[in-house]
């Protein structure tokens, strides 16, 4: 008799430590009667061992199977994503400041060089000279009055776009950079959940 309904929603990403015994309660949100939920959430699913890769994919089918084996009279309803990615939390290596400084300098010099090349490429100097002459009527080979505000505005525009002034935000919406980071992570997760999941790719005929 199937009388107890268990609703399960797999979480997207879960962090686990090495030698942790991952239970259903860690992997998914469960909605059921209180005592049923207690029973279900402590069912072990995966023992993280040293040989595991950094990312482990747990399919929802494995969870359903585990519940069915232990409590055949529970009816499981799933919703949401079909896989959870377990990220094994290896002791975090903090990045050396030397590397960080090197990357910082790389970006600094690269950005500066890129903007100089861009100015040369589009003959910005001539355009500025002409613009200065058009507005003021005077000829000026180095119209710094135009060019220094231009340079400051260049940085200002980039800050405006990314909505970041160091830690301070200009308004509350997520910046395009954060959205882009999220999209990238999503794409990585999707790739991992398909390719690292042994259940999702099966060869029917072996040649």
């Amino acid at each position: 008799m199937k009388d107890e309904m268990v609703y399960i929603r797999m979480r997207h990403r879960v962090q686990a430590t090495i030698s942790q015994n991952v239970k259903i309660g860690d992997l998914a949100q469960i909605v059921a009667n209180d005592d049923v939920r207690q029973l279900v959430s402590v069912i072990p699913i995966h023992q993280v061992i040293k040989e595991d890769k950094k990312l482990i994919v747990i399919d929802v089918m494995k969870v359903i199977k585990a519940i069915n084996e232990k409590y055949p009279n529970f009816e499981v309803q799933t919703m949401g994503v079909a896989q959870t990615i377990i990220e094994v939390f290896i002791k975090k290596k903090s990045i050396k400041p030397v590397y960080f400084i090197a990357v910082w300098l790389l970006l600094f010099i690269g950005a500066g060089l890129a903007v100089m090349n861009f100015h040369e490429d589009v003959s910005m100097q001539e355009v500025h000279q002409k613009l200065y002459e058009i507005i003021t009527g005077e000829e000026n080979p180095k119209p710094l009055l135009l060019q220094i505000p231009y340079s400051i505005g260049l940085g200002l525009g980039m800050i405006l776009f990314f909505n970041h002034l160091f830690k301070k935000r200009i308004n509350e919406e997520p910046s395009p950079l954060e959205v882009e980071m999220f999209n990238y992570q999503q794409a990585l997760d999707h790739y991992v959940s398909v390719h690292e999941n042994s259940e999702s790719e099966t060869k029917i005929n072996d040649h």
Partner: peptide
């Protein structure tokens, strides 16, 4: 954010240096 600032300062510095 700090990497972002590297690019921003790089742009400003490069531009000023150029002009």
């Amino acid at each position: 954010t700090y990497l972002l600032m590297a690019i921003v300062f790089g742009k400003i510095f490069g531009s000023l240096f150029h002009w």
